[in-house]
Design a binder for these strands. Structure first.
Length: 113
DNA sequence: TTAGTGACTGTAG
DNA sequence: GCTACAGCCACTA
């Protein structure tokens, strides 16, 4: 069967995040079927940088909307710059209108209420 | 081979 | 409302 690895699933979902939208580790983990394995999602993001895969890790933040993973980018402000270039406002490493920008896998373009 | 770590989340006290 | 603990899977030493 096509049982993709945990990481593969993470990457696939992460790549589905549309422009100007964000997602949380928990949402991705839950979509995979392991809502408590959100830590692995972050670990996968860390690996994706080494694998040189196109994974918008900058669009993945924790449940609070904080850029907890920014430290793993080349520069601490790289993540923020990428998000700002997509029209997302970042203040003090926290996404503004975070709840409105959340994107859920499966939902096409409906803005999360 | 075994043990530890890791960008988190949810529940309980 | 805040703090603390347990759980998940994969990779590295």
């Amino acid at each position: 069967m096509e049982e993709k690895s945990f990481f593969e699933k993470v990457y696939e979902i992460a790549r589905q995040i549309p422009f100007g939208r964000i997602c949380t580790y928990g949402i991705i983990a839950k979509h995979i079927g392991a809502p408590q394995a959100a830590r692995m999602v972050g670990w996968a993001m860390n690996k994706c940088g080494s694998e040189k895969l196109y994974v918008p890790a900058h669009r993945v933040v924790n449940r609070k909307g904080l850029l907890t993973g920014k430290h793993h980018f080349a520069n601490s402000n790289t993540m923020r710059e990428l998000l700002e270039s997509e029209g997302i406002e970042i203040i003090d490493d926290q996404i503004q209108n975070f709840e409105k920008l959340i994107w859920n896998p499966g939902i096409k373009d409906k803005r999360a209420k």
